[in-house]
């Protein structure tokens, strides 16, 4: 790993009111790999993910200290421009949330917001990214229909295409398959493996087997602290910490 990490976290602490939910997080996310954040529910996995694109700030009464460096720039710097940071990261949420507009407009939304007005170029972007998310063949005849009419699995791929269309470097996933049927889940997992050539992928999951299947790198969080992180194989086969062992064996859940 010669080049510097896209995401580097230094002494990150997050408080919800009096609750200290993330404690002294220090971590580097490897480039062009799939990183899975695992841990029991309520341990702060999603909070950590949301810190990466500052969506954490829309939670009421939250306080964040420390640094998150994305491409060398501290995104919590008071001078940092938040929309420009978020553009670098695509987000897949637990359940797909298509925007209340057509399939076409869902993909075109991001590029339009960032100033793309050329109709031809927008058409190209929409087609390109729908293909990238393997959705084009299924929807090419009904691009103008509301996105809500797609199946849940299709919606999640639409959300993936929507995220890719703003040309991010990183894809964030917050349990992106938890609402999907097994086949759609596999579809997304397969997509992740293909996409890691071009993007760094970070996703939260509570399914250990899923992490084992597709992740190259694991971060194990428990009670707001990083217990252990490292290549998937190492962590799963040879955990150093007692808590990691317990989790892997299914004692903590």
């Amino acid at each position: 790993m010669e080049q510097s990490s896209h995401i580097k976290v230094k002494d990150l602490n997050v408080y919800y009111g009096q609750n200290h939910v993330l404690k002294n997080i220090n971590i580097e996310i490897p480039n062009n790999q799939i990183t899975a954040i695992i841990g029991p529910s309520g341990c702060g996995k999603t909070t950590l993910l949301k810190c990466f694109n500052r969506l954490i700030e829309s939670v009421d009464g939250v306080r964040v200290t420390g640094e998150v460096l994305v491409g060398g720039e501290n995104i919590y710097d008071p001078k940092a421009e938040v929309t420009h940071i978020r553009k670098k990261m695509g987000l897949l949420s637990q359940r797909p949330f298509p925007l209340p507009m057509s399939i076409y407009d869902n993909i075109a939304y991001g590029p339009k917001i960032h100033g793309e007005r050329n109709k031809k170029e927008l058409d190209r972007i929409v087609e390109h990214y729908l293909k990238e998310a393997s959705l084009w063949e299924e929807v090419k005849d009904r691009l103008k229909t509301p996105a809500g009419s797609l199946s849940i699995g299709q919606q999640q791929r639409l959300c993936l295409a929507r995220g890719l269309a703003v040309e991010p470097d990183i894809i964030l996933g917050d349990e992106p398959t938890s609402a999907l049927d097994p086949q759609s889940s596999r579809h997304i997992e397969q997509k992740f493996i293909e996409l890691k050539e071009k993007y760094s992928i970070v996703f939260v999951t509570h399914i250990l087997r899923q992490a084992k299947r597709i992740a190259d790198y694991l971060i194990f969080i428990h009670m707001g602290e990083i217990i252990e992180c490292g290549p998937t194989k190492e962590i799963l086969e040879n955990p150093k910490e007692k808590k990691t062992q317990d989790y892997v064996l299914g004692i903590i859940s």
Partner: peptide, 17 residues
């Protein structure tokens, strides 16, 4: 749903957009 706002924000839209 707040996730819908998050979806738009995560694409780099401003709050007003």
């Amino acid at each position: 749903p707040s996730e819908l706002r998050d979806a738009s924000l995560s694409l780099g839209a401003t709050k007003w957009q």
